[in-house]
Write a protein that binds this DNA or RNA. Structure first.
Length: 589
RNA sequence: GGCCCCGUAGCUCAGAUGGAUAGAGCACCUGCCUUCUAAGCAGGUGGUCGCAGGUUCGAGUCCUGCCGGGGUCGCCA
């Protein structure tokens, strides 16, 4: 697939190889750091390479002089990008050693042809080489409906997964169900209360430590429908487990439903309880023990303010400090059961056993302190064979027209994800969640995200797509103009600087996909789409002032077709970007 | 106190793994609707990139130390 930056970089490397072959450069130069990028200032040209500056030291030559030699070696070479073949570029050296390239319009026109030819697949990349990536996200505790913070993690994880797929990775989306801890017992007791309530008992206040939320009323009723009075007046030991399992299943249904409203699905749900039951945790800790990484010891008290009930006691510990963590971490609770951490080690090892060496976890920022120990555990269990990247999602602050929406989880009146999505729509929610870096707190204002103004990035981008669609509707011959036909248009007639500027921007999409995928940063797509939208709105308004810049020129069918090709190019790239976000482009607004 | 994240225009934020004169939107001025959606566009005002050192051809970006904000800190998940 055409990527002008990658294509030109090949040309630079070929020129360097030639210089080496002819003895003009020493053998064995490392060209890994040679980059071809758009210069920040367009006045410097279309492309720019740092080759001379990066190699100057190894060659022991002044960067400017080296740049001159490389530039000379470049000139006259044939560039191949899309269906373009030729020497349509000029190279020029600038201090302190940049080589700036200007491309003929024909090169850009070929990029547009490539976009039309590829359609939504434009930007698909092979850099992933089919490597298997496992991305675990959401993993919300199965104790209630999802809240907005979970929604952010869900969208970030899903978009990152889609981005990695686009970049050529084989991605598995996973959800880890934390169904083994004490919280499940609390859930079971809560549901049992609601169950008795459903059978006509008066239950009064929900005791401290149980889940008070109204959503469990229905779960209690469902249990009553299924099992009748079976669990009434029986000791807790008899019903705790079965009711817990019923409740977890019900909560997972709730969560899956919340997720489906966002258009998010998973390839696998992995249960902590089943890992424990299968003995995976025992095997895992056993392996650590065999490696001498488990011992019984007493931890130093934490620095600063001590918890009230702190007292030294011996624990089963994992030597996390050997792998970069600050302290060794406990694997067992005092009742002999595994800690959450022990289960999580087994789970991550299980991912590795299933063939994943690239692991990504998306967590809430409150788990920041957990990152190092998990990475340490992955390192220990896989002998460095797998890498774990953790994306921490900061808080979402809800506002309504500038007024903070107060939430209290304890009082059970927190705003659920479902309420928000029902109010603003999945498309808006998803896009807005990706307009900030994941580690930056995000303000979400109900009024602003649905506002129709430039202030609102979703609207701004969608409006550009709608305008492009509108042009196509207005084109008398639009019905005859599929993308394949438009690719055959006389694109050499696209010569206006604004038109070429848009193609330049569109041609940067493959490069953006690759860099965002490698950095695991889907939000970059949102900012890129805003740039594309801005360039298109600009040209649109130009056409208001100067009739000869309008897309549809009644008297000139050839020019009209060329411009429609450009408009389609814009629509394709916006749609391809939105597809990564799981957002549907709108045709009309 | 330890660790993690953040600190960029009055406000909200980008900044492509170290590139050239640091960019958008909002706000504030000034223009642009008989014409493909003015729900938009153009121009202007606005910066010691928290502070101080260091690394090198070159630092908002990497390293060290401070300052400020947030999060977190042994059997919660």
């Amino acid at each position: 697939m055409a990527d002008i930056f990658a294509d030109f970089r090949r040309l630079v490397v070929a020129a360097l190889d030639d210089l080496t072959a002819s003895g003009a450069l020493p053998p064995g130069l490392d060209t890994a750091r040679v980059a071809v990028e758009p210069p920040r200032d367009p006045a410097h040209g279309d492309l720019s390479t740092n080759a001379a500056m990066v190699l100057a030291r190894a060659v022991n030559e002044n960067p400017m002089a080296l740049a001159e030699r490389i530039a000379a070696a470049l000139s006259g070479r044939e560039l191949a990008s899309g269906d373009y073949r030729g020497a349509g570029f000029t190279a020029e050296v600038a201090r302190p050693g940049f080589i700036n390239i200007r491309l003929d319009a024909a090169v850009w026109q070929a990029q547009l042809r490539a976009i039309l030819g590829a359609g939504l697949a434009y930007g698909d990349s092979g850099i992933g080489r089919g490597r298997r990536v496992n991305i675990e996200f959401v993993s919300a505790n199965p104790t209630g409906p999802m809240h907005v913070g979970h929604g952010r993690g869900a969208v970030v994880g899903d978009a990152l997964a889609a981005l990695l797929v686009k970049a050529g990775f084989a991605v598995q989306r996973e959800y880890y169900i934390n169904d083994a801890g004490a919280q499940v017992d609390a859930l079971a007791r809560s549901v049992h209360l609601r169950y008795r309530e459903a059978l006509g008992e008066s239950i009064g206040e929900i005791p401290e430590g149980l889940y008070p939320g109204e959503y469990l009323v229905e779960t209690g009723q469902a249990l009553a429908r299924r099992d009748g009075g079976k669990w009434c007046g029986r000791p807790e030991s008899e019903w705790l487990r079965p009711v817990g399992e019923f409740a977890v299943a019900a909560m997972m249904d709730l969560i899956r439903d919340d997720l489906s409203r966002l258009g998010i699905g998973f390839d696998a749900f992995v249960s902590e309880r089943e890992l424990v039951r299968d003995g995976a945790v025992d095997r895992c800790v056993g392996a650590l023990e065999a490696a001498g990484l488990v011992y019984t010891g007493v931890l130093e008290p934490p620095k600063g303010k001590l918890p009230d009930d702190w007292e030294p006691r011996p624990q089963t510990l994992f030597r996390a400090t050997q792998f970069g963590d600050e302290v060794d971490r406990p694997l067992k609770k005092s009742d002999g059961s595994w800690t959450y951490f022990a289960g999580d080690i087994a789970y991550h090892y299980d991912k590795f056993r299933r063939g994943f060496t690239d692991l990504i976890d998306v967590w809430g920022a409150d788990h920041a302190g957990y990152v190092k120990r998990m990475q340490a555990a992955v390192k220990a269990m896989t002998g460095g064979g797998a890498a774990l990247d953790v994306k921490l999602c900061q808080l979402v602050n809800l506002f309504d027209n500038g007024v903070p929406v107060r939430m209290s989880k304890r009082a059970g009146n927190f705003v659920t994800l479902r309420e928000v999505v029902d109010e603003v729509g999945a498309n808006v929610f998803r896009f807005i969640m990706l307009t900030r870096r994941n580690d930056q707190a995000l303000d979400f204002d109900f009024a602003k995200v649905t506002e129709q103004s430039k202030d609102n990035p979703v609207f701004y981008v969608q409006y550009a797509h709608a305008r492009a669609s509108s042009v196509m509707r207005h084109a008398a011959e639009a019905a005859l103009l599929g993308d394949a036909a438009l690719a055959e248009a006389a694109l050499e007639r696209l010569t206006d600087s604004h038109e070429l500027a848009i193609i330049r921007l569109l041609a940067g999409w493959p490069r953006l996909v690759e860099s965002a995928a490698e950095a695991h940063e889907p939000h970059r797509v949102a900012f890129y789409l805003q740039e594309v939208a801005a360039a298109f709105h600009l040209l649109w308004t130009k056409g208001k002032d100067e009739a000869n810049l309008r897309f549809i020129i009644g008297a000139d069918r050839g020019l009209t077709r060329a411009r429609l090709a450009l408009v389609r190019g814009v629509a394709i790239v916006i749609a391809a970007g939105l597809a990564v976000f799981g957002v549907e482009p709108v045709e009309e607004m």
